[in-house]
Simulated assay, not measured.
Amino acid sequence: MVAELLLEAASLMLIGMGAVFAFLLLLVFIVQLISRVMQRYFPAKATASNVVTTPGSSGPSAAVIAAISTAIHQYRQQQ
């Protein structure tokens, strides 16, 4: 009697765990599919945060530094 109940409990546990695993696996595949569809039909526009800098460029370019220096110089002259 007890052995039958334990066997039934084990089978119910395995069925339940299998159902949860199958649901989570299906959920992962659906999310991946939606991600691929969105990337294909609605691609993300390139923004400043998507731009990858090269390892050699450790700071702003010389033109940017010159523009900032000029702006600071002009601001200080107005004060």
Rank of each mutant, 00 (worst) to 15 (best):
Ala71Ile: 14
Ala3Met: 03
Pro43Asn: 02
Lys45Tyr: 03
Val28Leu: 15
Ala9Arg: 15
Lys45Gln: 07
Ser58Arg: 11
Gln79Lys: 07
Pro60His: 03
Gln74Glu: 12
Ala48Val: 11
Ser69Pro: 01
Val2Asp: 14
Val20Trp: 04
Ala46Phe: 03
Glu4His: 08
Ala62Tyr: 10
Leu5Asp: 10
Gly18Thr: 00
Pro43Glu: 00
Val51Gly: 03
Arg76Ile: 13
Ile68Cys: 00
Arg40Met: 02
Ile34Val: 15
Tyr41Val: 04
Val31Asn: 12
Arg76Thr: 08
Pro60Asn: 01
Leu24Asp: 05
Leu12Arg: 09
Phe42Ser: 00
Ile68Phe: 08
Ala46Gln: 14
Val20Thr: 04
Val2Trp: 13
Val31Ile: 14
Ser69Leu: 12
Ala19Pro: 00
Gln79Met: 07
Gly56Thr: 10
Thr54Ile: 04
Arg76Lys: 15
Met1His: 14
Ile68Val: 09
Gly59Phe: 10
Arg40Ala: 05
Val64Asn: 02
Leu14Thr: 13
Glu4Ile: 08
Ala46Met: 07
Pro60Val: 05
Leu25Gly: 14
Phe42Met: 03
Ala19Leu: 14
Ala19Asp: 10
Tyr75Cys: 11
Gly16Phe: 01
Leu25Pro: 11
Val31Tyr: 15
Leu5Cys: 07
Leu26Ala: 15
Val31His: 13
Val64Asp: 05
Phe42Glu: 00
Leu26Thr: 13
Asn50Phe: 01
Ser57Lys: 07
Val31Thr: 11
Thr53Ser: 08
His73Ser: 12
Ala19Val: 04
Ile65Leu: 10
Leu12Tyr: 02
Arg76Asp: 09
Gln77His: 05
Ile68Gly: 00
Ile34Leu: 15
Ala22Arg: 05
Pro60Asp: 02
Phe23Ser: 05
Arg40Tyr: 08
Ser11Phe: 14
Ala46Cys: 02
Val2Thr: 06
Gly56Gln: 09
Ser57Phe: 05
Thr47Asn: 08
Gln74Ala: 10
Lys45Pro: 02
Ile30Met: 11
Pro43Val: 01
Met1Tyr: 05
Gln79Thr: 02
Gln78Gly: 02
Ile72Met: 05
Leu6Met: 08
Ile68Gln: 01
Thr54Lys: 03
Pro60Thr: 02
Thr53Ala: 04
Ser35Met: 04
Val52Ala: 08
Ser58Met: 11
Leu6Glu: 06
Gln74Gly: 01
Ala19Trp: 01
Ile34Tyr: 06
Ala66Tyr: 00
Phe21Cys: 10
Leu26Pro: 09
Val52Thr: 10
Phe42Val: 01
Ala44Ile: 07
Val28Tyr: 15
Phe23Glu: 07
Ala44Phe: 01
Ala62Lys: 11
Ser11Ile: 03
Met1Arg: 11
Leu14Glu: 15
Ser57Gln: 13
Val64Tyr: 07
Ala48Pro: 00
Ala3Leu: 08
Gln32Asp: 11
Phe21Arg: 12
Ser49Ala: 09
Gln39Ala: 09
Ala9Val: 07
Ser69Cys: 06
Phe29Met: 12
Arg76Asn: 14
Gln79Ala: 04
Pro55Asn: 10
Thr53Lys: 06
Glu4Ser: 13
Thr53Pro: 02
Ile72Lys: 04
